Amino acid sequence: SSQSQGISSSSTSTMPNSSQSSHSSSGTLSSLETVSTQELYSIPEDQEPEDQEPEEPTPAPWARLWALQDGFANLECVNDNYWFGRDKSCEYCFDEPLLKRTDKYRTYSKKHFRIFREVGPKNSYIAYIEDHSGNGTFVNTELVGKGKRRPLNNNSEIALSLSRNKVFVFFDLTVDDQSVYPKALRDEYIMSKTLGSGACGEVKLAFERKTCKKVAIKIISKRKFAIGSAREADPALNVETEIEILKKLNHPCIIKIKNFFDAEDYYIVLELMEGGELFDKVVGNKRLKEATCKLYFYQMLLAVQYLHENGIIHRDLKPENVLLSSQEEDCLIKITDFGHSKILGETSLMRTLCGTPTYLAPEVLVSVGTAGYNRAVDCWSLGVILFICLSGYPPFSEHRTQVSLKDQITSGKYNFIPEVWAEVSEKALDLVKKLLVVDPKARFTTEEALRHPWLQDEDMKRKFQDLLSEENESTALPQVLAQPSTSRKRPREGEAEGAETTKRPAVCAAVL
């Protein structure tokens, strides 16, 4: 046999249950609850290399294929790409003598399909299967379609040439079993990697079954959420508030809700932002270029202005709740996480202390139980975000031990490091100062900020419009641009040419 590394010779191994799959997660993409704000000051410096380099560890398999027929071997997927077919160049070659004697062998292509993985959001991997055969590759009886790919989820059954000719079961060793999710959700989405997690739940990458488009699904544990919100009269209202707010909003710089499922837990389906959180971008770069800050901040102002015009105060604006559309420097941003939002009543007064301390406005800290506050709290938070983006460190921090965090904020005395700000323009610093004003009545509004000289930049605004146009074009394009080929190089076993392929839609398939 010419099988590559990772293939075992026996096809009769006992199949494990899916609970053996491991679970991976990374930083929070968007969480309903406010958790302790991640610290920006503690960015690790590059460490000196050791005298002796450690040995390379043996790579762990990321997936496993269990053979369902004699003549096929099990495969431990270690590499990122595997070709399957009769050709000797394939990493998994159909060359077992037992297999060659079967009637089905002649229906398999020289290069029938490939399984591979690509880097997705949060640097996690996504597994795909890609059909290159004349007679078809099927996943859970659905045709992939020649020249098309679809994501592979845990426990997928792979069939060759005929939908009933099941050859492998695919085990993704990095994700959960699909069966743990409600059927209504599974009918519409293929669940994938964990993108982030918080005290009350997690955010998962998923794929729409009909279109193969990526989405983010925010899962909120009702049990954990009820415990964490025990002081509230009705904890469920917080989730329902977020859903109702998101459904009503329609702005290019605000995250869109696509679906909602109320089962044992809450499942909020949101558009996916491939670039992750602004927080991670700031930490990764230490600070952002001023031109990049301007492009992002302009969009934040437009989003918050839209919220305020619609009578909504976000109340928890922070870099973790600003998501980026891509890994590119120039990209769209979207505001997310409306769990603490407040729809303005007639009095415009709110007395609930919520939000993240580092970003809270002075009037929030001094008015607990005594007075109210209004939309100006969001403008203060925007000032803190702009400060961080321009400088790479927070204006107020618990680690300045000589003054408490509350006193720093209520006095408006931010930590100004001259040598850092020497590289920032006077106009940018002036806008920061106009937003970090203790008196909410004297603080800049979103309208005033948008009129500030720093943002009178036609090149930046043109760039934003171009990015918007690109997004609109990409969302308007159909996901499947061509029909699967019906040509046949070899006959199917026991049926006429093209008899099955043309009847089945290529579900969740995307043209390369």
Rank of each mutant, 00 (worst) to 15 (best):
I243T: 11
E244R: 15
I245G: 15
H251G: 03
P252Q: 05
P252S: 09
I254Y: 00
I255D: 02
I257A: 07
N259H: 04
F260R: 08
D262T: 14
A263Q: 05
D265S: 07
Y266F: 09
Y266C: 14
Y267R: 07
I268G: 04
I268R: 02
V269M: 04
E271I: 11
M273P: 01
G275R: 05
E277K: 03
L278D: 09
F279T: 06
D280W: 14
D280E: 08
V282M: 12
V282T: 07
V282N: 00
G284P: 03
G284E: 14
K286D: 11
K286E: 10
A291E: 06
T292P: 12
T292Y: 12
T292S: 06
C293P: 04
Y296S: 07
Y298H: 11
Q299D: 01
M300R: 03
L302A: 03
V304W: 03
Q305C: 03
L307D: 00
N310W: 00
I312F: 13
I312S: 12
I313F: 01
H314Q: 06
R315C: 03
K318T: 00
P319T: 14
E320C: 05
N321I: 04
L323W: 00
L323C: 15
L324C: 10
S325H: 03
S326T: 13
E328S: 04
E329H: 01
L332V: 10
L332I: 09
K334L: 06
D337M: 01
I343W: 15
G345D: 00
G345Q: 06
E346R: 10
E346C: 15
E346W: 04
T347N: 09
S348I: 14
M350L: 14
T352W: 00
L353H: 09
P357D: 06
T358K: 15
T358C: 13
L360R: 05
V364P: 01
V364N: 00
V364M: 13
L365V: 13
V366C: 10
G369A: 11
T370N: 10
T370D: 09
A371R: 02
A371N: 05
A371D: 11
R375P: 07
A376R: 10
V377M: 11
V377S: 01
D378C: 08
C379T: 10
C379K: 02
L382C: 13
G383F: 00
G383I: 01
G383M: 00
I388M: 12
I388N: 13
I388P: 15
L390I: 10
G392V: 00
H399F: 06
L405N: 12
L405V: 09
K406M: 09
K406R: 12
Q408K: 07
Q408H: 11
Q408L: 06
K413S: 00
N415V: 14
N415K: 14
F416E: 12
F416S: 04
A422L: 15
S425T: 12
E426A: 03
E426V: 11
E426W: 12
K427T: 08
L429A: 14
L429Q: 03
D430G: 15
L431R: 03
V432D: 03
K433Q: 01
K434Y: 14
K434Q: 03
L435M: 13
D439E: 04
K441M: 13
A449G: 11
A449D: 04
L450E: 13
L450Q: 06
R451I: 11
H452Y: 06
P453C: 14
W454L: 04
L455H: 09
D459R: 08
F464S: 11
Q465R: 14
E470K: 09
E470Q: 07
E471G: 14
E473N: 09
A476Y: 15
L477I: 09
Q479E: 09
L481K: 14
L481H: 01
L481D: 02
A482H: 02
S485F: 08
T486Y: 07
K489R: 12
P491T: 08
R492C: 09
E493Q: 11
G494L: 09
E495K: 09
E497Y: 04
E500K: 11
T502P: 00
K503H: 00
K503M: 11
P505V: 09
P505Y: 08
V507W: 09
C508L: 12
A509S: 06
A510Q: 15
V511F: 12
L512D: 14
L512K: 04
